[in-house]
Design a protein around this nucleic acid. Structure first.
Lengths: 195, 195
DNA sequence: AGAGTATCTGAACGCACGTTCAATACAATC
DNA sequence: GATTGTATTGAACGTGCGTTCAGATACTCT
């Protein structure tokens, strides 16, 4: 028995990636077998190799796609007029974007070590690219006298760590809405680099 | 051939835990085999079971020990007179303590999901205990008018995420000393919750 | 209707896994 | 120097791993 009905290649590929994303995030890359991913999709393990050359590449593609989307989404965001407005937009964007993709965010922070050196470097470069966009905002504000961070590079890393941390505790339907969380974090970030 | 010379039980146990900590942090719990740990220690895989009932318990013991040490070390820290002094002490303590144990910190944030429900709950409780100590400081300062965090619970989580993030980028011999990093983060934390 | 192509199955490959345990080697005690 | 107890080996258990591939199936095109 092979396919049941219809042409599936355009649907199986995304389903494999979705299943892999979910399972890798839940149990960790090394703890998830190709057979588990296949079972989640409703297919035999061998069929996965029509869509990926190997397990590591499957992980890499997920991480790469996530980082590309992150940067593209930030680029598409309306650009604030002042450094202060741009920083506020960044804070709210980062929280909102990450809360919409908890599995991909989790993977991006936890499973980099399962990549070979070349793939690792590619993802790291994208991460640094994203960080640099925040640092540029802080530097501009610093030059304009709006901000007074003791060290813009460290402020960049500190702010991103703080914002990404929201994903570890936020639960849908909890005591705070996403917008309210954005308000609270913006207040803290704003003050932390205030002049 | 069994032992080479001398009585080893008091030395093999700690060596197993040290090897497991290093390898788990480097490659992830699921990706490390009992045979690899044994090889690192210079012993056969079967010998590990003299010191741990199974692999998960080995991980749990590492995490538990780390959390116990963390809380005990904070308890032993001199207690500042004011909320502001206590917060500064917390910031500097957290950075210093975590930078001294990067592997254990990494494990504590990444491998909780490999614990069974009971073990998981035990570690989570200790983590919450630690967080509550910071939140208590913020609440006191809030009541005294020293701090004006929009939400002490979120400020707690934000500060801890920010501080723990230092471990992801700090490298010995880099451009900043540990003390200087403490200064910079204390400046940002102080301002972020300032009245 | 028939050929060709894309998609998938099912079995197999060699290898490594966590764990157990009888046998063994050594150290300490008498 | 024999006895006892502890620390360790080395082989084995059944299971599951990532990956490959010949063959089967269902769809498309003529």
């Amino acid at each position: 028995m092979a396919r049941k009905t219809g042409s599936h290649s355009e649907i199986t590929g995304p389903r494999i990636r979705a299943a892999a994303l979910k399972l890798f995030a839940r149990h960790g890359f090394a703890a998830v077998s190709m057979r588990q991913i296949a079972a989640e999709v409703g297919v035999q393990a061998g069929a996965l190799y029509l869509y990926t050359p190997d397990k590591e590449t499957l992980l890499f593609d997920l991480l790469k796609e996530h980082m590309d989307e992150l940067i593209a989404a930030w680029e598409a965001e309306p650009r604030g007029a002042s450094p202060r407005e741009r920083l506020e937009a960044f804070v709210r964007f980062h929280i909102r974007f990450n809360l919409e993709r908890p599995d991909a965010v989790f993977l991006s922070y936890m499973e980099l070590r399962n990549l070979g050196p070349g793939n690792f470097a590619a993802i790291e470069a994208l991460r640094r690219d994203y960080e640099n966009r925040l640092e540029a905002i802080l530097s501009e504000g610093q030059a304009a006298g709006t901000f007074a961070a003791p060290d813009t590079k460290l402020a960049t890393l500190a702010i991103i760590a703080m914002l990404t941390g929201v994903n570890t505790w936020y639960r849908e339907g909890g005591r705070l809405s996403r917008d309210r969380v954005g308000d609270i974090y913006w207040d803290m970030v704003r003050k932390s680099v205030a002049a």
